[in-house]
């Protein structure tokens, strides 16, 4: 069974069909890329996956569980974490706290623990803090722990957001244009980071504009254009696919 399974998914906004009849399977352990020109429906697709929008037709399931009707937080419980195209960090909190929030689902202290600062609460806090520092190191930004998210550089913020998403121990990590705004050397680091994330056992699904990065990184790629999937395959298949070439030449991204 695939980890993520989309069958004939459609989303309309009034007269506009943003996602049209898309079928997609992402296998466990894959690095899967979705590309397409601006307005092709990539971000909308992500927003359907985390229930920011509801899809009108079709089926989406995560590890066999249908997400139709589930709320964002329920989907998070299925092991889906994401980053955002325009970063959504908790700007007035420290980097460490940002990551610790990401660990929310991994902790079990309840309201009584929180009120009375019980042994469980303290133990979990200590452990959460230790893991958060570890994650900051893992994404390559050790040392910014106590800095406020809003004061960090753009590239660091991108990594921090990835760390926060990883803190939930996701099975499926959705990365929304992770390379946007990064310089070439940062992009190289990102490539290595995403591979390392996959090696920890997570499945990565990413949206990206940077063709080079996607071709380099992803084992499978789907191409969206005007909300429809026009091609899917390995990087080399995609490179030679006539409809892809047409879409990109017709409307260069």
């Amino acid at each position: 069974m695939s980890l993520l399974d989309l069958v004939e998914v459609t989303k309309r906004f009034g007269a506009l069909t943003a996602v049209s009849n898309v079928t997609l399977k992402v296998e466990e352990g894959a690095i899967f890329g979705i590309i397409g020109p601006n307005g092709a429906g990539k971000s909308t697709l992500f927003n359907l996956l985390t229930a920011i929008y509801r899809f009108d037709e079709g089926r989406i399931s995560v590890d066999g569980t249908s997400i139709a009707g589930l709320t964002t937080q329920r989907i998070a419980r299925l092991g889906v974490a994401r980053t955002f195209q325009n970063l959504r960090l908790f700007g007035n909190a420290s980097a460490l706290t940002n990551v610790m929030v990401g660990e929310h689902l991994a902790l079990h202290s309840n309201i009584i623990d929180s009120l009375l600062d019980t042994a469980r609460e303290r133990r979990e806090r200590k452990e959460a803090e230790r893991r958060a520092r570890e994650l900051l190191r893992f994404v390559g930004i050790a040392g910014v722990d106590e800095h406020f998210a809003r004061n960090l550089s753009y590239g660091t913020q991108r990594r921090l957001e990835i760390a926060r998403a990883l803190a939930a121990r996701p099975r499926l990590l959705l990365l929304d244009e992770p390379a946007a705004g990064l310089n070439p050397s940062e992009k190289q680091d990102l490539l290595a980071l995403i591979r390392a994330i996959r090696d920890t056992g997570a499945t990565v699904l990413l949206i990206e504009h940077d063709m080079g990065l996607v071709m380099n990184l992803c084992e499978r790629i789907a191409v969206l254009d005007y909300g429809e999937k026009i091609a899917e395959g390995t990087p080399s298949e995609i490179r030679e696919h006539p409809r892809v070439i047409e879409a990109y030449l017709g409307a260069p991204a």
Binding site: T72, A76, F90, H104, L107, I111, S114, A128
Partner: peptide, 24 residues
């Protein structure tokens, strides 16, 4: 300093991001 307190901070700062972290 608690898990609940961090959840509140997250909600206060960015409710959508908080939901994505699985916070009810």
């Amino acid at each position: 300093e608690s898990r609940l307190g961090r959840a509140w901070m997250a909600i206060r700062e960015d409710e959508l991001a908080a939901k994505h972290a699985g916070i009810d």
